[in-house]
């Protein structure tokens, strides 16, 4: 039985889709069988970031409405052969995701894959609640700024009340992924400090992904950053996050706090 991960945040534009692609690819690069699922029906992006937008024939909604079988809708990645994508529909809206349909699809994906990584839409409505409903593990993506942190706090509250796990009285495993962290701005005090975010959200930190041109460049060429440039700082941060997700105890360095090499490196990147 595979594990279902939901990548969620409440707020939009914080890096859910980028992180879903990067984490999914990183898990698959270790040899695990992974499927990334786009729950953002009507505003799909994951196909673009995965570089599969020209290969979409059937989608999630087609499967739910019985117009296609699940294997027909799954798209196999051309670079990593254990990585698959279940795209969302761009022409429908979120009402086409029915709780029963989602439940069926998730059950079959769990049987066939080691990891099912769900990319949640922004907001707290139907799409987001259905994406988190069947999750075993939640990754809460947050930017170090007040609005993002408060929205994440709201989502954590929903993870603890509106998911199947919560309804069964079990505890949902939750991790914080701090993205778009800009060491230069942090140094100037323009951003919330890592400790402050952790104090407010009080869930364990999975990783800190620095704001980087590498992420943008990877998205533009349709490749998860962990595949496009595995040696880049954000890619290494995602690889470390995956190792922590699997239970490894790795020390965590806040970018920019290691002066010298890192300082110079980021100083140039941020300009």
């Amino acid at each position: 039985m595979g594990k279902v991960i939901v990548v969620t945040s409440g707020k939009g534009g914080v890096g859910k889709t980028t992180s879903t692609a990067a984490l999914g690819a990183a898990l698959a690069q270790n040899g695990d069988k992974v499927v990334v699922v786009d729950f953002d029906v009507g505003l799909r992006n994951l196909d673009l970031v995965m570089g599969a937008e020209r290969r979409v024939v059937y989608d999630f909604v087609n499967v739910i409405q019985g117009e296609a079988k699940l294997p027909q809708a799954l798209i196999r990645d051309k670079r990593v052969e254990t990585l698959y994508l279940l795209p969302a529909s761009q022409t429908r809206d979120k009402d086409n995701l029915t709780p029963e349909g989602v439940e069926k699809v998730m059950a079959s994906l769990k049987k066939a894959f080691d990891w099912v990584v769900c990319d949640s839409p922004a907001g707290i409505e139907r799409g987001a609640t259905l994406a988190m409903r069947h999750a075993d593990v939640a990754i809460v993506v947050t930017n170090p700024e007040v609005s993002s942190v408060r929205d994440s706090d709201r989502i954590i509250g929903l993870l603890d009340s509106k998911t199947l796990k919560a309804e069964k009285g079990e505890r949902m495993e939750k991790h914080l992924l701090l993205t778009r962290y800009d060491p230069a701005r942090a140094e100037r005090g323009d951003m919330l400090k890592v400790d402050d975010v952790l104090e407010i959200l009080s869930i364990p930190l999975l990783g800190i992904i620095p704001e980087s041109m590498d992420v943008l460049r990877a998205s533009n060429i349709g490749s998860p950053v962990t595949l496009a440039n595995g040696d880049s700082t954000p890619a290494r941060a995602y690889f470390d996050a995956v190792r922590r997700l699997k239970g490894e105890d790795l020390p965590l360095v806040v970018p920019g706090e290691k002066r010298g090499f890192f300082g110079k490196f980021f100083g140039r990147k941020a300009a």
Partner: peptide, 8 residues
Amino acid sequence: TEPVRSGQ
């Protein structure tokens, strides 16, 4: 015994 989250 748990944090009271935004919106609760």
